[in-house]
Every structure is written in C-alpha cells, then in structure tokens.
Amino acid sequence: MMEFTQADVLSVLGTGIKTLVILVGAVLMAALMIPIERRLLGLWQDRYGPNRVGPFGSLQVVADMIKIFFKEDWIPPFADKAVFVVAPAIIMLTSLLAFAVIPFTPTWTVANLNVGVLFLLAMSSLGVYSVIFAGWASDNKYALIGAMRTAAQMISYEVFMGLSLLGVVLLAGSFNLGDIVESQRGLWNVIPQFPAFVIFFIAGCAEIHRAPFDLPEAEQELTAGYHTEYSGMKFGMFFVGEYLGIVLISCLVTVLFFGGWLGPVLPGFVWFFLKAFFFMCFFILLRASTVRPRYDQLMAFGWKILLPIAIVNVAITGAIVVATS
C-alpha cells in the first residue's frame, strides 16, 4: 500500500482548505450579488433600492435568506418528483465545479487542469440539464416553453463561446487557464482578441440566461419560465445558481481577456477581484439598459453574425500564430 508522508497529508489539507475557501467565497459572492444588483439597478433607475435592513441595506440578503429558508418547500403533485428535485442541484453543482479550475492567484487554484478551458465548457454545457429537466419535470406549459428555449439557446451559444475561446488558446498555446493568464503578461488578450472578447461576453450572457438574453424566464411571457413551479430553497438554488453564473463568467472574462491576477502595485488577488467585480457590475448595467430580443432574433443573431465572426477570428489568429512562430 501507499505510504502517506506528512507532506502528503499537509498538501491534501491545504487543498481542502483552499477548496472550502473558494467554495464559500463563490457562494457568498453570488449571494452578495443579489443586494448589489438591487442597489445598482435602483441607482440606474433613479431610485434607492433596498436601503432599510442594516447599513445601506446590506443585511437585506440575510433577511431574504431567512425568508427563503422558512418558506414551504412544495412539490406539485403532478410533477415528476425525482427529476424535479435533482434539477436545481445540477445548476449549483456545475457552476461550483467550474470554479475549481479558475486561477485566482498563481497559487490559488483548486485543480490545475491541463484542459481547463474545455472543462469550463463541459460544465457550462451540463448546466443546460438543470433548466431542461426543471422545465420538463414541472409539467407546466410555461416551464416547458422556457426549457425548450433554453435548450436551443444554450446549445447554440455554447458553440460561439467555445469558438471565441480558441483564439485565446491559440495565443497562449495551452488549454491551462494559469498558462493563459501568464501569456498575457505583455499585453492583455482583450486587445489582440477584441472580437473574441465581445463574442465571449455575449455568449456568456446567453449561457447563464441573463438579461438581455433571459428568454427562458421572460417574465412578461412565461411568468417565470422554467422555475415557475419552484418555491422555497429549490427556487433559491436556481436564483443563487444564476448569480453564481454571473460571478463565474466575470471571473472567466478576467482570466481569459483581462490578465487575471496581473497588475501593478496591488497584490494579485485584489486585482483579480477588482476586475471581476467590474464585470459583475457591467452585467447589471446590461440588465438595466438593454431590451430582450425576440426568440428568432436571438437565434439569427447567433448563427448569422456571431458564428462567422468567431470563425474568421479563429482563422486569422491561427494564421498569425503560424506565421510568427
């Protein structure tokens, strides 16, 4: 049998602590996004938002959490129970798993995978099941329509997301996210890969079905879309899952296009946090300002505009990389 040395135990312990910190940090950040979003939306709509609970409304999230924990956890009698219960767990699981490969600083990564970028794409593609199964298991027409929209939207936009990442991968010569950050030491990827950045951001927005691409849960048409029948903490998991998605995509944009932890003077973690937080706020600004496209417009925009741009971008980047190497 294998012998465990003290160093082994320490490294396992260290990884465990790291995992726990990142896990708790990600969930906390996602939970904090809720009051931040409400306050910022208020700011941009010339009102205040929640400002009563705690200083500047900062404890609103605690109040909401307490409320949602004590709500009745109801499963409709016509629902497919097993699938109905599994669905909200999937989105939390895949979003949190995706955080495993994100390098917050050179040393703070849970899993330094060599196929990190692909792992992210894999996790985001598994996230589709959460919405689809939730919609199907609810046995409700609004939920089903929401689920159908999600299936088509997420599968399509995953394609552009992957294609836009290829340019970055070509420049770095590696699928490893840490290597990708290191490759941006001279110049952030956002400058040579600007079209890829725009496509990635749009596709990421569609992937986590955030406004303006929130067709799966378009309130005006589908009440709440795929989570119409959900209540209590199961709904809470969808809710937190959505915000986890925002945090995740913001972290990804930071890592892939804005040089991750790189930056002068301040320590790496602070730089990472500042950059990621900027994009989280930008997601909220997008929600405050843009209108939701029609479903066929969404599809046409993806396949007729984003796909050609992404392919041309990959081709040109590849040609330049081959020519200069």
Partner: peptide, 25 residues
C-alpha cells in the same frame, strides 16, 4: 485521456444528449 474525457462531456453529454432530451420532452 483527459482531452477525450472532456470532449465526451462537452459533445455527448452536453450537446447530443440535450437534443435527445429535447425531443423526448
């Protein structure tokens, strides 16, 4: 085969099976 493993998830579990589910739904 980490590469094949991830592709298995991305392509089969993530994309093709979604279409199966889509149709069965």
């Amino acid at each position: 085969a980490a590469f094949a493993a991830v592709l298995e998830v991305v392509v089969y579990a993530g994309a093709i099976m979604v279409l199966f589910v889509f149709v069965v739904m």
